[in-house]
Design a protein around this nucleic acid. Structure first.
Lengths: 219, 219
DNA sequence: ATAACAATCTAACGATCGTTAGACTAATAT
DNA sequence: ATATTAGTCTAACGATCGTTAGATTGTTAT
């Protein structure tokens, strides 16, 4: 019957709303930013290198797709990801893109020769090494993002403070630096700087979203 | 530096290609159809109620995003899903849509009061019951799709043959009918018919994609 | 009250997308 | 060789989208 066709059209149309939200590069970047923690429109615009007007327009789309939520705080509007499932979706669509699109695979290979992703076992080992203090896990994102969520036993040292705080780091140990994820290049820069200064540094191209850690609300 | 901005733009743009492919209702429906097994453009157009020209145009987009592959067979072009990851993505974006979009949740609730999804344990139990023959798992999709992939111990009985083949079904046992997935209504119709005929029938709103079963190539 | 600021809303532009029709290509059938 | 069938390519239409500018709404500071 033609009725069931109408029902089907309606169902697929709804799912397509999510696809549409994920069809713009800037909206994806905004989602990744929000996976790091809640942020104001101003901050989001600055971090993604777009105007506040454009950021507001894109965030509106994400809000209409119920992927993000807002809260007014003084004269700022704070955006946050709706729930953990949104972060999982971001990781999942990115994984499919890296699996299917050769252009993306090559761009990432050019970027860094680091291992692309850790297996769950790798992660367990890393956590164990970090707990015992055999390696130092360094979170080089802004402090607020570290507060919202960070990898187990990680230490906060924002990239712009790194140079002046090198003395806090132990000389003999391996340093594992991470940031917002594989498309964020702060940890790449950090490793470059650390190696220059004689440290044994490794780049971990993952972040809290990849580890399934949802950011907490901050006051 | 502005250079890292260019790199980032490039990376997010690639991921957005996948989002763009998933931003059209018809393309999503085509993906779901292909999750059932490989099909010609003609078949895909008929099953999704669109013209062959439009189907060809949409399939082209999916091909450019490397989500589907083609093979020429005589004067037909056979489309198939690129790999299992694509099917997983379809299940994942649909899950997010059902989680976030109230409209979708309500539409599905109106459609049927059946349980929405089975837990892994539920699936194990069902397989066990099907193996021992305590329930009959009925695949009401076209026979070719059953051939390409089907749930464990399922029996093929296409919806259009169901009425004439009722004698093949045991009277006392519970019959679990499934089709292409929660947005496909063939199993709903089948259960309606079976109940009318005095059978104890249940609708399973899942399909091979939800069970992580990749369709095999047919000759 | 007035000014400054954060953010949204409205309107507008060019670019892209969904859809359809018509010409075209390649494979099969007569 | 001609006709038929399956599918793609091109061009074109209106609709939607991304982006920017200008006006507007709240909120805070003076």
């Amino acid at each position: 019957m033609e009725n069931s066709r109408n029902i089907k059209d309606l169902l697929y149309e709804q799912v397509a709303r999510i696809g549409k939200a994920a069809s713009s590069p800037k909206r994806l970047e905004l989602i990744e930013m929000l996976c790091q923690g809640e942020k104001s429109v101003e901050t989001l615009a600055r971090e993604t290198s777009i105007s506040m007007k454009l950021a507001s327009a894109h965030l509106r789309e994400l809000r209409l797709a119920h992927l993000v939520e807002t809260e007014k705080q003084g004269k700022n509007v704070i955006y946050r990801i709706a729930n953990r499932e949104v972060a999982e979706f971001w990781v999942s669509i990115r994984a499919l893109a890296e699996d299917r699109l050769v252009e993306l695979k090559m761009a990432l290979a050019n970027l860094t020769s680091d291992p692309r992703a850790l297996t769950p076992q790798d992660r367990d080992s890393l956590v164990k090494l970090a707990r015992t203090g055999d390696v130092v896990v360094l979170d080089v994102r802004p402090a607020a993002e570290y507060e919202a969520a960070h990898l187990p036993y990680a230490q906060s040292m924002p990239i712009d403070q790194l140079k002046s705080r090198l003395a806090e780091l132990p000389q003999g140990k391996t340093i594992v630096a991470y940031c917002r994820g594989p498309y964020c290049l702060m940890a790449v820069d950090a490793v470059f700087l650390l190696k220059q200064q004689g440290f044994a540094a490794i780049h971990l191209p993952e972040g809290v979203a990849e580890w399934g850690l949802a950011p907490v609300r901050l006051e």
